[in-house]
Design a protein around this nucleic acid. Structure first.
Length: 442
RNA sequence: GGAGAGAUGGCCGAGCCUGGUUGAAGGCGCCUGACUCGAAAUCAGGUUUACCGCAAGGUAACGGGGGUUCGAAUCCCUCUCUCUCCGCCA
């Protein structure tokens, strides 16, 4: 970042078109630059003091026993020792303080959008890049998924509210089976494509949340669970445990790209979304999701984003659900993302496309926070024929939903509803439903 | 939950009692070279990371944090994690 500060600033400021926010970000960036200079000075001063101390110790270490006694008794020597002893802790503390301040500041600065991401302030400015399928026309009034589901007795929101409060649901009977079928169908699809399946922990250390970028800035969006003196977080997505899987590791280049898929429940407090999507399964505190996570070489991540997004689209296509792909504008992108595609599925009752997957390339943003690198596999030789050892480089990380299971259930209930209130099960799911072709009341 | 034992480089493993050129013996693995038609074997050399510096070079790190000391892998405190036995549990 310090190497081409102006470029980074220019890119970052594309995220916040509004004047007020922009100056706030600009102010933070200026602060970082000042701290970087301060840090350099602090390091140099601390190091020269350490060097002096080491030189003193070395003199003693090398001295013969009787010389050693003399040296230790020497007033000049003692004075130098005393001086260093007084100065060193301060210098070291100062260096540490500057580095901590800088680190804390950097954790609150978002990632730089890629050049091919459109400018924009909000979701309004996202651009559709692809459309698949034709929304079905219905010769009867379409019902919302929660009406369909409640009528069939496969969704129960009332009892969920009694038991857990708002934004929870019970699935029941065939609804459970459908949910499980979707999870199996999706993970099988990814596994067939070569992804390694992981089943992650649902509770993670807060440091893991910092690694993927949910903390420290977005603490209100996730649930904290107190645990002894510390706290764990309920994962808002499998991205968190699965990306942190390789934290503090140096991977072999030959092993890249690494592709994982993981089913997990997800927990979100959605504190800022009160009043939105209050009915139905769209926005819940707990939902199921199958997630894809990738680790690539830096040069491979743009192509991997395309590949991963396509892999998610294949599921929608297999289920026969019309969707479109949009590229998010600078103002609508997530905090750590360099580029994000959303997949939006057609919901007849809302007469619109709604997000069902989000696929992002994080560049080295998360890798830097988690210290995930790879060692370039160079057996390159220098002029003398000696092998050149290349330094480890940060990987790029990507992740995407493949797909949000609850919203997929919503899409099926709405798109496959029949006049008599039953719901046809997409052919691709029937093998997972014991051959069941249709959900009917009863 | 109770009792005990541990955590050292890519891996195994010394060093800790008795603090001092120990970024760390030895082995394995890996890389380069020699020998070979080639390979194996053998021999020689190399093989952590981050930061500061144009460079020469320097600084830090032996699970994390703190302390003692002129000086800590080594002594003390504390936290985390792992293992063994007992209890409990899905």
């Amino acid at each position: 970042m310090c190497d081409n500060f102006d470029e980074v600033r220019k890119g970052l400021l594309r995220r916040v078109p509004a004047e007020g926010e922009q100056s706030e970000l600009a102010r933070q960036l200026a602060q970082v630059q000042a701290l970087a200079a301060e840090r350099r000075t602090a390091i140099q001063e601390a190091q020269s003091a350490q060097q002096a101390r080491n030189a003193q110790s070395e003199r003693i270490a090398k001295a013969a026993p009787d010389e050693r006694k003399q040296l230790l008794a020497d007033p000049a020597f003692q004075a130098e020792q005393a001086r260093l002893k007084a100065a060193l802790p301060d210098l070291e503390a100062r260096q540490k303080a500057v580095e901590e301040r800088m680190g804390a500041l950097l954790l609150n600065i978002p990632n730089v959008p890629r050049a091919d991401v459109p400018d924009g302030a909000s979701g309004e400015d996202n651009q559709e890049v692809k459309k698949w399928g034709t929304p079905k026309t219905f010769d009867f009034p379409v019902k919302a998924h929660f009406e369909v589901g409640e009528a069939l007795g496969i969704l129960d929101f009332e009892r969920a509210a009694k038991v857990s409060g708002s934004r929870f649901a019970f699935l029941r009977g065939a609804g459970c089976r459908l949910e499980r079928a979707l999870i199996s169908f999706m993970t099988d699809h990814h596994a067939k494509k070569g992804d390694i399946e992981l089943f992650p922990p649902y509770l993670v250390l807060e440091s893991s949340m910092v690694g993927t970028g949910q903390l420290p800035k977005f603490a209100a969006d996730s649930f904290a669970v107190s645990f002894g003196d510390s706290a764990l977080r309920l994962i808002p997505t499998a991205e968190v445990p699965v990306t942190n899987y390789h934290r503090d590791e140096i991977l072999e280049e030959a092993a890249l790209p690494i592709r994982y898929c993981a089913y997990s429940a997800c927990f979100r407090s959605e504190a800022g979304a009160a009043g939105k999507d209050t009915r139905g399964l769209i926005r819940q505190h707990q939902f199921n999701k199958v997630e894809m996570v990738r680790f690539t070489r830096p040069e491979d991540s743009p192509a991997e984003l395309e590949r991963m997004t396509t892999q998610a689209e294949e599921i929608l296509e297999a289920l026969g659900l019309p969707y479109r792909r949009v590229v998010l504008c600078t103002g609508d992108m997530g905090f750590g993302s360099t580029k994000t595609y959303d997949l939006e599925v057609w919901l007849p009752a809302q007469n619109t496309y709604r997000e069902i997957s989000s696929c992002s390339d994080f560049g080295d943003f998360q890798a830097r926070r988690m210290d995930i690198r790879y060692r370039p596999a160079g057996s390159k030789l220098d002029a003398k024929g000696k092998p050149v050892k290349e330094k480890p480089r940060l990987v790029h990380t990507l992740n995407g939903s493949g797909l949000a299971v609850g919203r997929t259930l919503v899409a099926i209930l709405e798109n496959y509803q029949e006049k008599d209130g039953s719901v046809v099960i997409p052919a691709a799911l029937r093998p997972y439903m014991g051959g069941l072709e249709r959900v009917t009341k009863g």
